[in-house]
Design a protein around this nucleic acid. Structure first.
Lengths: 390, 390
DNA sequence: GGGATTTGCGGTCAAGCGCAACAAATAACG
DNA sequence: CGTTATTTGTTGCGCTTGACCGCAAATCCC
């Protein structure tokens, strides 16, 4: 037995307090020591001790006090150390985006590596390792890299970061976490892109401060989703939550049906919108402009309305089940939602339980292309934020 | 400032450890002190101290050691004190069921009060108070009643226990929590019946030990559901989660459609099953027997198959979104599922993402009519289990 | 420039838990 | 049947943690 567990019985307390402080300055930005004592309820002397330890660990810095117009001695400002960075990666069909995201939420480095063919998981790992090595020799020479986070468009097993299936990358059962960890020598986390996007919107974007959020993103290849529940990302038993794109919502009018299976992402799709405005391969702003130009009384307008009706049923189903505080829409779903947000909200409320929908807000995602990088970095920071002294 | 917060800095630790121990003996049943040290990782002396405190609080008892055939000094067995009870209540259309549920999971008292008309919230509160008062003078004379838990068939606002709408009780915006608390003088919690049923199945029933569970119950008046997520009940922003009955699942074949709106509980309903076997008002076992007698190649068999197809789509939608470890079905949904559980599982797997469904288990609820009482009692015990020293 | 206010800093103190040594109770063994 | 091994409860002690207190420093208001 001889429990050689904790050297100190109350180390759990200290760990939690350190984590609380680090999380605060990471999520809220620079905070004075005084405000830290106030929000945590800890004693001034305790805050001094804890901040000192975080400083010695190289995780926070103390800056000169802000010229506040309050009476009394000014309080130093505690800020997350910008030299602590995570490597955030988003492999996509046409490019691999890699960035360095600091603990102070700045993004000092970002690079888009265009590729003319699909990269294998091994090639992806090698490319990441090469960029990280180059950055280490240069701009990140004095940085402390805590890990790598990947946002993968596909099903990712939560337990071991195995990519079960990423259809348009053509990755199947690829041990991406282990490959990247070995290639870079860094702790690596792999997550589903939509789940990480939901995390980012929850922490810093349109769903900030809301504990129950449904996030749906419309991409070129389909509809992905992520869930925030109890203020945390919901991974489910295997890690495959939020796959609303494969759901089959009821379609009230038979004339609205286009695809055989009735699968949401076959009925509500970017491709059908592009076809309606006679475009091939445009980005979302271009698509939005074309739809606006066509107007509501055009073929394109009818298609938007049709997709909105089906989307509303799918959202109502989710709202009935999960009673979220907000639904956040990204990608082309944001485009077709923004045409008339109150109208879409009303459509959803008409099909959902009244209590579930009455305080529901449907919002447009707000973090743009940084979303996945922020979410991936957040996943890489997670261990550090849970136990800063490790 | 002068933080008069905690008398001791580490009281949080002690509170958590006390809660861990009490929760263990409550959920797992009698446990020896030795096994407590092993599962918690705490020191023997600490366990002795904590168990002593729980004993002084009247929450646990220590019994003579089990005649174990192991070497070494026998370890006393720690048991939750049976005198600590919660009052569990389930108001329904035709009766009000009220029970005393002990912390050791026994149910020493249970009473079904038949009513020939709908009771108002105020009458319900008065009836509960009357029964509790009578029990206090008799069988519960030496009991420590920690609170009242109600399982209400309707929408319950989590923040204040207001019953927003319980259609077949005809309660609307009824402050049930406050009414019962005032009438009885006891701390009261109010929850949705399906959510509390899910909790019970999660803690003691078919979904024991699973952190991600979707629970659906088919009753006479519709389909209710509850969700377990992160090992906890999911309440959502307002408290109205799990309302799968109002969802609109896709219906593959138009000939399967019976109702106009395509709402699940209009398509999949007990009433339609009863009609198919020409019965009026039968309980679930009778219905199951009638369906079995009719056989699969009858009108009733066709209706069961139709309902199973639609139910499968609704379940697949939930599985895609939530990736639960198990789906638990109760009421008449258990009846139509049990006809061919592997077949229903296959139907769901055919419409869900393969990864989400591959380890999915569809199970039949196992707690029978005790389910709601256990769930309601658990809700009433929640505060005690969170902070035993309060 | 003086008073008020707020903060930082060092020292002291109580609480909580681990640890080690000892005692007790049982099984295994000769 | 007695001895040994094993396991566990008990007791006293020490370490860690964070609150509290008094003093000095820094800033604003007058």
């Amino acid at each position: 037995m001889k429990g050689v567990s904790d050297p100190s019985p109350t180390e759990g307390v200290r760990q939690r307090n350190l984590a609380r402080l680090l999380r605060l300055v990471h999520l809220e930005g620079p905070l004075s020591r005084a405000s830290l004592t106030e929000t945590t309820g800890l004693n001034r002397s305790t805050i001094a001790d804890l901040v000192g330890e975080l400083g010695r660990l190289g995780l926070v810095e103390e800056r000169a006090p802000d010229p506040s117009r309050r009476v009394g001695r000014p309080s130093p400002v505690v800020v997350a150390d910008a030299r602590v960075v995570a490597i955030a990666v988003n492999p996509e069909v046409d490019a691999l985006t890699i960035a360095a995201v600091s603990l102070d939420r700045s993004i000092p480095l970002r690079e888009r590596v265009d590729v003319d063919r699909l990269l294998s998981p091994e090639e992806t790992a090698a490319l990441i390792a090469e960029r990280v090595a180059a950055w280490r020799r240069g701009p990140l020479a004095d940085a402390q890299i805590v890990g790598v986070g990947l946002a993968v468009p596909g099903l990712v097993r939560a337990s071991d970061g195995l990519v079960r299936n990423a259809p348009h990358l053509r990755w199947t059962d690829a041990p991406v976490r282990d490959l990247v960890a070995e290639a870079t020598g860094l702790a690596t986390t792999v997550g589903n892109d939509a789940t990480l996007g939901a995390t980012a919107e929850h922490l810093f974007g349109a769903a900030q401060g809301l504990d129950d959020v449904v996030y749906l993103n419309g991409g070129a290849s389909g509809i992905g989703g992520g869930l925030i529940v109890h203020g945390m990302p919901l991974l489910g038993a295997g890690g495959y939550t939020g796959e609303f794109g494969q759901n089959r919502p009821g379609i009230a009018s038979p004339v609205d049906r286009r695809a055989d299976g009735g699968v949401l992402e076959d009925e509500v799709s970017r491709a059908r919108l592009l076809a309606a405005v006679r475009l091939r391969g445009a980005d979302d702003p271009t698509l939005a402009a074309a739809l606006a130009e066509a107007g509501p009384d055009s073929e394109a307008g009818d298609e938007v309305a049709r997709q909105r009706r089906i989307l509303a049923t799918a959202l109502a189903n989710a709202v009935n089940a999960l009673n979220p505080a907000a639904v956040v829409l990204g990608g082309f779903l944001a485009t077709i939602a923004a045409v008339d947000l109150p109208g879409l909200t009303a459509l959803v409320q008409g099909q959902a339980m009244s209590a579930n929908a009455e305080e529901l807000e449907i919002r447009v995602a707000s973090l743009a292309e940084d979303r996945l990088l922020i979410g991936a970095a957040e996943a890489a920071f997670a261990d550090l934020l849970r136990d800063p002294s490790a």
